[in-house]
Amino acid sequence: MSTSVTTAQGSEQYHARLRVRRVLSEFWRWIFFASTALAIVLLGMLLYSILVPGLPWLSWNLITEMPSRIPEQAGMNSAIWGSIWVVLGSAVLSFVLGLGTAIYLEEYAEKNRWTAFIQTNISNLAGVPSIVYGLLGLVVFVDLMNMGRSVLAGAFTMAILILLIVVISAREAIRAVPSSLRQASYGLGATKWQTVRSHVLPVAFPGILTGVILAMSRAIGETAPLIVVGGASQVLFRPGSPTDPFMVMPLQIYNWTGRPQPEFEHLAAAAIIVLMIVLLIVNSLAIGLRHYFSKKTRI
């Protein structure tokens, strides 16, 4: 018996195999396309499931009225104001702390074990479930610092949560500043902080701002830590000071979704539409700002 094949036989086998391989390639191409398409179909279903029950319930009442037992009269005014308080508070706090951390890590820190530890720590923190931040906020801010279940405690907890987003994007923005700028500043005798403040930060600013806005958009949608810190009970007034109790938009949606009456489910859908519109505006703002500044400051 012979193990060798003639050229003709080999070629025939090769071509038969090639046809199979080509069909297989084409087949998988469609599978990969289908998985992308399925993701988009799912997004479509998600929007459908919100728009159909929600649109008929969308009204000015929803924005101007306080929560109520009667679904026709219920609104999310207190939740909108609560979200504004908490999100703005956490944005300011995380901006200050995050920018400081980013400047330190990019401009000041030496490459040693401690710096490496801070970096690893930041990436580890990014993986901690948000509800665990809620437990931290409950013990540290609500209890130990005696803030109670207030706007302040909510803003601090949320600030810690979104701090990582600010740090990571601010670092990227600072790193993107060309080192020739720093060298020129040092060459004129400026100190480190003078260089950072007057030359690095202005150039990095659009990137940092975009990061803060994206962090805000995360804070707007975040619910879990605020259940722990703020509690999910109804709040029937707007917060007037940082020590007042609060309700935020996603928490109001959670509250309505959990009720047995279908009217509240529809109300929740309408509230989700409002929430998504707010997110859309905030995200467009980030994109718009980036676009505007990238035209203005080009180095």
């Binding site: 919100i50 619910t223 949606i253 979704t257």
Partner: peptide, 15 residues
């Protein structure tokens, strides 16, 4: 999809 708040996915799952 990545920007949708998780509470919305919860609503989607339930309803």
């Amino acid at each position: 999809l990545a920007g949708v708040p998780t509470i919305v996915y919860g609503f989607f799952a339930l309803t």
